[in-house]
């Protein structure tokens, strides 16, 4: 009997002593932390993707609490609603940011852009890009080794076996920008998602002269400038033999898509053009458009488009 009593007493004594020591130690080494950091972290999506540029959501929360103005901060995963919530916690006004999505600006499929050599080094785009100009005649385009896919934390990308190009799943893409950073050739861009996800962009980053670019890839932008002349809104600029569409100025009229001689300008998620059943093929979620279908669509388009313009 006494053994049990002694055991209980001893245990209690140890417990009390430990508690006292712990209390003083905790007092001694206490670090003050702004309680709002926890609150903000709670509001963030806890994806820890690093898309905001900070080490995880906790790091982002600390930066947000410290900042005087959170206009320049954006959680790419949570987007505007989360930032509004964070703003409410911290007592800041937050402007609504436009949703964006990642876009692959290269259509150099195996068919469009024939290989001239074969890469046999470590399977990393960065290594291939620092070694040489790539497997094809185009030294700007996609290297096809999938570093962007590896970088994606949201399972929103995969490599298309047939084309050798990465494909972005728009529904899953949170526009964190990890793939943009991962791509050594800066092919992927975050562009405005657009109304009903409709977007128009130049699917090429080749800065070579027209003839060289065209020889390397049949769907390269050759810098002819037709789209620049066609665009009624001055949204297209031409620099280093490469056209670029400013998504803030673009009004999605699709005129440039029609005039591009190499079909380098892509339109996404548009309804099929009227009176042209063939063009239905162009309605695809993938940025890669079957060139054949497009050519057919184009022939029809150009006729129609010219008559429209008159």
């Amino acid at each position: 009997m006494s053994i049990i009593v002694i055991t209980i007493l001893a245990l209690c004594a140890i417990g009390v002593t430990s508690a006292i020591i712990l209390y003083f130690v905790a007092q001694k080494f206490k670090v003050y932390e702004d309680p709002r950091i926890d609150e903000v972290e709670e509001a963030l999506p806890a994806a820890n993707c690093g898309g905001c540029g900070y080490p995880g959501c906790r790091g982002f929360a600390e930066a947000l609490v410290k900042a005087d103005n959170i206009d320049n901060f954006l959680c790419p995963v949570g987007g505007a609603p989360v930032m509004a919530h964070v703003g409410a916690i911290l007592g800041h006004e937050v402007k609504a940011a436009e949703p964006t999505v990642a876009v692959v600006r290269c259509n150099g499929t195996c068919e469009n852009r024939p290989k001239t050599n074969s890469y046999d080094g470590a399977a990393s785009c960065s290594i291939a890009a620092s070694l040489y100009g790539g497997e094809t005649g185009c030294q700007f385009g996609c290297l096809g080794l999938g570093e962007c896919v590896d970088a994606c934390n949201f399972d929103a990308m995969y490599m298309d076996e047939e084309t050798g190009l990465p494909v972005i799943d728009e529904d899953k893409c949170v526009s964190c920008g990890a793939c943009v950073k991962a791509c050594p050739n800066d092919i992927i861009e975050l562009r405005k998602k657009g109304p009903k996800s409709r977007r128009i962009f130049v699917s090429c980053v080749n800065k070579d002269k027209g003839a060289v670019a065209k020889k390397a890839c049949s769907v390269a932008c050759i810098g002819c400038g037709k789209c620049v002349k066609e665009c009624p809104f001055d949204a297209i600029t031409l620099e280093n033999n490469l056209a670029y569409i400013d998504y803030n100025k673009c009004r999605l009229c699709r005129k440039c898509v029609v005039v591009c001689p190499t079909h380098a300008i892509h339109e996404l998620n548009f309804p099929p053009r009227k009176e042209k059943p063939v063009a239905a093929d162009t309605k695809t979620v993938k940025p890669v458009v079957s060139p054949k279908a497009q050519t057919e669509a184009k022939t029809n388009d150009s006729k129609e488009e010219t008559s429209d313009n008159k």
């Binding site: 050599n117 074969s118 046999d120 080094g121």
Partner: peptide, 8 residues
Amino acid sequence: TKVLVAPS
């Protein structure tokens, strides 16, 4: 066949 390219 195409020539192979790899780092040294």
